[in-house]
Every structure is written in structure tokens, then in C-alpha cells.
């Protein structure tokens, strides 16, 4: 009896990456768990204002869950927040980055496919996105390593064509083949894009060094832009779709970088100019 009861319940350490309303007051919550990989769980009654679970299963919280096996969906019976990642909630730009990271994780994983390393990386990324002065750095680190942990680690050290070590010259990145081509092979390959030396260096450094050593890097805006472009092309090619949250991220970032948000949605439906 006791063992049977134990089997019907299980524990999971989870980060909430997506949710949608379900029925009257419930939500279907997509969690990435350390033990079981990605799971879709039913959180009952969490849209009621007095729900005891609601605050613990908010988006991007790290929580300990007790889950009961159900027929269609397993049900969250208890939830306890470990880390709410407050900075991600208090700054729109960081919220945007967190959405993007969560969407990438969702696209890169299948249900019930445990990947504890990817779990750790995601958790660390949420923490870094909340703390980093320049959130682009932990974001790029996440993109590169999450792709790697999902089985799409790009080759950055030898040419994919001639197998010669990459030399400091004008090299190329090929999204379809998943890595770099040397200065001789690149121009002949269809779909290869040039990659600058500094950008390639940073990618290689990111691939081989822990994040802590990366933190001190100060990159020029052009290098940031190039890294973002190369990795984004690589992952949209590999995932065969483009993450939707990027649009939001760009929208928010544009406005932050311009110091103040313009009064009307820039280039939006009204297209009016700011009076101030």
C-alpha cells in the first residue's frame, strides 16, 4: 500500500518555462526538470487569487514540485519556490532575454528526456541574465552550449572540408554543416558566410572556457552584433524555425538603447513621432 502510494507521487526540481491557461482556473505548465527533463504538468486552481501554489509556479521560477501521476496530465500537488529570479521580473529587457532563453530551451528539448547538464546551464543562465551588466554575453554562452548539449555543437577548430586546423585568416561559418571552413574552402562552399577573426576567437573561447572566465570580456559592439547574427543563423537553421520571442527582445532592446522609449510605438501602427 505504502509503496503503491509512493509510486503515484514523484518529486521534481523544476524551472517553469512556459504556461497557458486551462479550464476555469487551471494552468498547463511546461517545466524543465532536473530529474525527468521537460514535462507538461497541470497546476490546478492557480489562477484563483488565493491559490497557495500560484506564486511558486510563476514563469522562470526555480521550484521544488511534488507531482501526482494523472491520467492525461500529471498534477502539481505541492510547489515551493527555491529562487524567484527577481531581477528578471523587474527589468523589461532582462524579461525579454529570459523569454528568449526559455523558448530556445523549449525548442531544443523533447518531453521526458532528462538532461541534467542542460538544466544546470539554464538555471545558471537565468541567474546570469539577472546579474550581468551585459546580458548578451550569458545569452550567447547559453545559445552555444545549449546547442552543444542538445547535440549540435559546432566545430570551430578544424575546417569541415579539408580537416586542416583553422588559421587566423578570413574564415567562414557554414550553418548547414555546423561549423567553420577555412579561407581556402569557404569561398567555394555554398551557404558559407564570412566570420571575422575576433568573433571566431570569442566563440572558441566560449566553447572551451567556463563562463566565469568569460565575464571579464568586453566586446566591441560590432563583435557582439556578429556573434548574435552567426549564432542566431545557426540555431534557426538547426531548429528549422525562428524563435518568436526574438521580436520582443529586439523591440525592448532598441528602446532601451535609445535611452528613452519614444512616445508612440516606433514604426508601429500609428507611426507618429515623439513630441518630447
Amino acid at each position: 500500500m505504502e509503496s503503491e502510494r509512493r509510486q503515484r507521487l514523484y518529486r521534481a526540481e523544476a524551472v517553469i518555462i512556459k504556461r497557458r491557461d486551462f479550464g476555469e482556473a487551471d494552468r498547463l505548465v511546461t517545466c524543465f526538470t532536473r530529474e525527468h527533463g521537460k514535462l507538461t504538468l497541470l497546476a490546478k486552481g492557480v489562477r484563483k487569487i488565493t491559490s497557495r501554489k500560484a506564486g511558486h509556479v510563476e514563469l522562470f521560477t526555480h521550484a521544488r514540485l511534488l507531482v501526482a501521476k494523472g491520467r492525461t496530465w500529471d498534477i502539481i500537488t505541492q510547489a515551493e519556490c527555491i529562487q524567484p529570479f527577481l531581477p528578471l521580473r523587474e527589468d523589461l529587457q532582462r524579461t525579454g532575454y529570459a523569454y528568449y532563453a526559455a523558448e530556445l530551451l523549449d525548442l531544443l528539448t523533447q518531453e521526458q528526456d532528462p538532461n541534467p547538464e542542460l538544466f544546470e546551464l539554464f538555471l545558471a543562465t537565468l541567474e546570469r541574465l539577472g546579474r550581468a551588466e551585459e546580458p548578451r554575453l550569458p545569452m550567447r554562452y547559453f545559445e552555444l552550449h545549449a546547442m552543444g548539449l542538445a547535440g549540435f555543437q559546432p566545430e570551430l577548430f578544424v575546417c569541415l572540408n579539408c580537416q586542416e586546423p583553422i588559421r587566423p585568416a578570413q574564415n567562414y561559418f557554414h550553418v548547414g554543416r555546423g561549423g567553420v571552413l577555412c579561407e581556402a574552402c569557404g569561398p567555394a562552399a555554398n551557404g558559407a558566410r564570412p566570420i571575422s577573426l575576433p568573433a571566431l576567437k570569442v566563440l572558441r573561447y566560449m566553447q572551451t572556457h567556463p563562463y566565469a572566465e568569460l565575464e571579464a570580456l568586453r566586446l566591441r559592439p560590432a563583435v557582439h552584433a556578429e556573434l548574435e547574427e552567426v549564432l542566431f543563423q545557426y540555431l534557426t537553421y538547426t531548429l528549422e524555425r525562428s524563435p518568436k520571442s526574438v521580436q520582443f527582445l529586439h523591440l525592448v532592446r532598441e528602446r532601451v538603447n535609445h535611452g528613452m522609449m519614444p512616445a508612440g510605438p516606433a514604426g508601429g501602427p500609428n507611426g507618429e513621432s515623439s513630441p518630447v
Binding site: 512556459k18 518568436k244 521580436q247 523591440l251 510605438p265 508601429g268
Partner: peptide, 20 residues
Amino acid sequence: PIEGVGPEQLKIGELVQRVR
């Protein structure tokens, strides 16, 4: 963001207009 709902899909521009 993940469902692709941005400010253009909401009545946000209209609100700004109203305030202005």
C-alpha cells in the same frame, strides 16, 4: 513573446494616443 503577441496586437498605441 513566445506566442508572438507584441504591442501591435494590443490596444497600446490607442492608449498612448488617448493619454496624449
